[in-house]
Amino acid sequence: MKEEELAVVTMNADHAGDDTAGRGTMVIRIWSEANADQPFRCRLTFGRAGTGQPREALAASHEQILETVRKWLEDFPE
């Protein structure tokens, strides 16, 4: 990503007193299984701050990864 493409992210003033509002984390781990018919593998671990245990999803294609990320992001206001 080029420096001019970076955006400054700030917390909405409506949630300034709430440390967890609009916060979440997603970790995407990708690997390859050598002898599998479809060697591409992915584990997504994600959650929102203050909601308890993180959730997990497994994917075997780029499309599945993108769909999981898209659904997770829809829980967050723009």
Rank of each mutant, 00 (worst) to 15 (best):
M1H: 13
M1I: 08
M1N: 07
E4N: 08
E4C: 03
E5W: 04
L6Y: 03
A7Q: 14
V9P: 01
V9L: 12
T10Y: 03
M11G: 02
A13R: 11
A13Y: 04
D14V: 00
H15M: 02
A16D: 07
T20E: 13
A21S: 14
G24D: 05
M26W: 03
M26Q: 03
I28D: 01
R29Y: 05
R29E: 14
I30F: 00
I30W: 00
I30P: 01
S32N: 06
N35Q: 10
A36M: 06
D37L: 10
D37G: 07
Q38V: 13
Q38Y: 03
F40E: 05
R41V: 01
C42R: 08
C42D: 02
L44A: 13
L44N: 09
T45E: 10
F46Y: 15
F46M: 13
G47E: 08
G50S: 10
G50Q: 15
T51C: 08
G52A: 07
Q53K: 06
P54T: 12
P54C: 01
R55M: 12
E56F: 09
A57Q: 15
L58W: 04
L58S: 13
A59K: 15
A60P: 00
A60E: 07
H62I: 02
E63N: 07
Q64H: 06
I65H: 08
L66E: 14
E67D: 12
T68Y: 03
T68H: 12
R70T: 09
K71H: 06
L73H: 01
D75N: 05
D75T: 10
E78F: 13
E78D: 09
E78H: 07
